[in-house]
């Protein structure tokens, strides 16, 4: 990895780690860090991989920089949704819909087989706390565990059908 690649990799990690920050602050932080790297390299008078590596090491891990920034952000503006809009902290915490969704997916599965988890899925998609990606992952988990036993059941029935 040459020097420029090291810088690109570092800025890429910073970008990836900075998702909890508001979009404008994220861009500002990336720009500040890039300027800081350029200034340090100009001061060093060299751009070889070892110098760049040392500069990046002095800066610290991107995740640590973002954590420091996130702590400085007011809680209400810390999180953004998948469209980059700021969300108040209250929207990101537990509410009646979230608790009901979790209960229906777990206890509801025993009290109301099939109907309980189905209602839980509806509440999951109505909730504004989880992002669309998180909702998709949860839905996929449910579907995969639903589908696998059904395929197994069909296979058993198919075998019984051909066996008799």
């Amino acid at each position: 990895m040459d020097g420029d690649e090291l810088v690109r990799d570092y800025l890429g990690r910073l970008e990836a780690a900075s998702w909890p920050l508001p979009p404008d602050r994220r861009a500002e932080l990336a720009s500040e860090v890039r300027e800081h790297i350029e200034a340090a390299l100009a001061e060093a008078g060299r751009r070889d991989p070892v110098t760049i590596h040392n500069v990046l090491e002095r800066l610290g891990r991107p995740e640590e920089i973002v954590a420091t920034e996130a702590d400085a952000e007011p809680l209400a503006t810390r999180f953004t949704d998948e469209l980059g809009r700021r969300m108040p902290a209250s929207v990101r915490s537990w509410g009646a819909i979230e608790i009901a969704a979790i209960l229906l997916l777990t206890v509801g599965a025993f009290a109301l087989p099939l109907v309980g988890p189905a209602m839980g899925m509806v509440l999951l998609w109505l909730s504004k706390v989880w992002t669309t990606r998180e909702k998709l992952v949860a839905t996929l988990i449910v579907l995969i565990i639903f589908v696998l036993p059904i395929i197994g059941l069909l296979a058993v029935e198919g075998r019984a059908g051909t066996g008799s």
């Binding site: 999180f79 990101r92 915490s93 537990w94 979230e98 969704a101 979790i102 229906l104 997916l105 777990t106 509801g108 599965a109 025993f110 087989p113 099939l114 309980g116 988890p117 839980g120 999951l124 706390v129 989880w130 998180e134 992952v137 949860a138 839905t139 988990i141 449910v142 565990i145 639903f146 696998l148 036993p149 059904i150 197994g152 059941l153 296979a155 058993v156």
Partner: peptide
């Protein structure tokens, strides 16, 4: 696969999803 096993697995499908959703919320609040 035994039919009783399938009947047991179907209600359990929501539990891993619920665990995932709880973990997401707990990690976000830290």
């Amino acid at each position: 696969m035994d039919f009783d096993v399938v009947r047991l697995l179907i209600p359990l499908a929501g539990i891993p999803a619920a665990i995932f959703l709880i973990v997401v919320l707990v990690r976000r609040r830290r």
